[in-house]
Design a binder for these strands. Sequence first.
DNA 1: TTGAAAGCGCTACCAT
DNA 2: ATGGTAGCGCTTTCAA
Lengths: 334, 334
Amino acid sequence: MHHRKPTIEDVAREAGVSRATASRAMNNMPGSSARTRALVAQVAQTLGYRPDPAARALASGRQMAIDLVVINYEPDLVWIGGHPYFGRVIAGMTTALAGTDVQLRIHVASLDKAGELIDAVARTTAGAVLVNVTSDLAVRFWRQCPHVVSLNTPAPMVPLVASDNTGGAYTALAHLHRIGARRIAAIHGPSINACATSRRHGHRDLIEDAGMPDLSANGAFTREGGYRAAARLLEQHPDIDGMFVASDLMAAGAVQAITAIGRKIPDDVAVIGFDDSIAATCANPPLSTIALPVEEMAATATRALLDGDLAPTWLSNFPVRLITRQSTDAAALC
Amino acid sequence: MHHRKPTIEDVAREAGVSRATASRAMNNMPGSSARTRALVAQVAQTLGYRPDPAARALASGRQMAIDLVVINYEPDLVWIGGHPYFGRVIAGMTTALAGTDVQLRIHVASLDKAGELIDAVARTTAGAVLVNVTSDLAVRFWRQCPHVVSLNTPAPMVPLVASDNTGGAYTALAHLHRIGARRIAAIHGPSINACATSRRHGHRDLIEDAGMPDLSANGAFTREGGYRAAARLLEQHPDIDGMFVASDLMAAGAVQAITAIGRKIPDDVAVIGFDDSIAATCANPPLSTIALPVEEMAATATRALLDGDLAPTWLSNFPVRLITRQSTDAAALC
DNA sequence: TTGAAAGCGCTACCAT
DNA sequence: ATGGTAGCGCTTTCAA
């Protein structure tokens, strides 16, 4: 016996009705008796019929998908699972897509395969959100498909949803300064990352305005990096009384390093992170931080894609918000 | 001027070639001169032509997608972004899908919309991975589409990828016992969750074997829940010297509660979590925990879907692994 | 190397 | 309520 995948034709024949009737019955369209409906459903069931999504999409004209493209700079794909940011983007996109019949597709590639992926998705997508995609690759995408929004990474011409990273860093440092810290160290993210660079600028602005020295180190946006950077900074500058850490993940590591050498947080060293990710609340003590409305940003990007009017250089900017917890304020509620 | 979306027909006409030639040229198929190729590409570019994925899929017969279905029990969609587990599943699936031309689609629904989503996806998917989907809904899915794997939640007939939660809990508690803890409290997840239930069983088994009292509380799998449960347990049983917490997220909260009242970890109270998620490493001190190979599990589920031979009751079981860090072992490296 | 034409499986319109 | 049928936009033989 030859096993072809059953089509609606097979169902119709077996049920003794026309294709049209079978289609109506299975899609619960008006104009189809309950008897027929039941019969067709029954036949479809026993035949194991599954409608072909492509054929259905082609015939009906609807069916869309929005693509999320993420580039993975680390050699290991694991970071994407471990990174708190990524899930929030999906959550935001999902929210924006709820109620529509638009699907969400996910693509992840390492840096060496990034070009291929960009081209492949750009050729076929109805709209895409770019996360962690470098400026040049974003432009490459945009050239092939203008229905695209970059999240947080600016690129010439490419529509952008951004947040005020520079202002956020400034606010964070101003908070440390306000509560009395005067020897404030900073742990930055990698320069390749646009957010990290903006946050560096905010840091530079405030230490200039406040006339404080630049006590900076690089933490590579990882917890381990944050731990090591903090340990090194404290060794080189034992009088540090505040620490601005450009991501919560690094800040969680910094907190561990600080308490490991017996300093108290916030009494000896006040610490503030960035992102308001899960790492901020899991740290001990919980971290003051700058909240990024990632979900809303992703939702906005998605809606912009759905609406379709995306002029080049379209820009949506989101404010950030200071959240104070025990790492800068002993009296804060947990 | 009427703006229809340009089709390959338009490109062909404009380039003065046939549809077939245009198709070949754009897909870089053999049998197409460089001149034609360039010409067609040029025309396509200026016309802003984008191939219709549905039509292409229908005509070529290829193109598949695997679906990830997640049910969100919390009222708020945010948890999915905050939950460390979810991103790891995607990372695993992505790995398994790399190199194939199979797409990954994501679907999230709240509990009240879960039935709808299950039916919608089951009707059209070529294969699906179910995360956090209750047993009855998983069965409902399976009835409509047998190409499905449930992750960690057993359901009658439904193929399953599981990990040894019961054994993991037993191992975790045995570790606490081995390092000398005798008054061991437990913070559990919600009974509705299959993993939580298995971990309860492992806990029950060990305290019976070791002849220890049952000092249990419920932490709802949230950090806040873990914090409150730990605080309450310590108040009711001040002599607690060990704590088994059924998820790292809850354990991070428990750690905060324990240090907040001045107890030392691990000297006064040793703590062990579960999952080896980001919450475990961000806690302070870092948490000993039971590592779940979530990425591998998700990858296995995905590959099983791709291979296609999924007998009912197909089962793949993964071992778990004890990871020791400072929360049970002061000398552990960070 | 190119063109003509036959579908891919389904929906939706127009009759009946 | 049902059946016939014309496409949806593309790929892929088969001939030229």
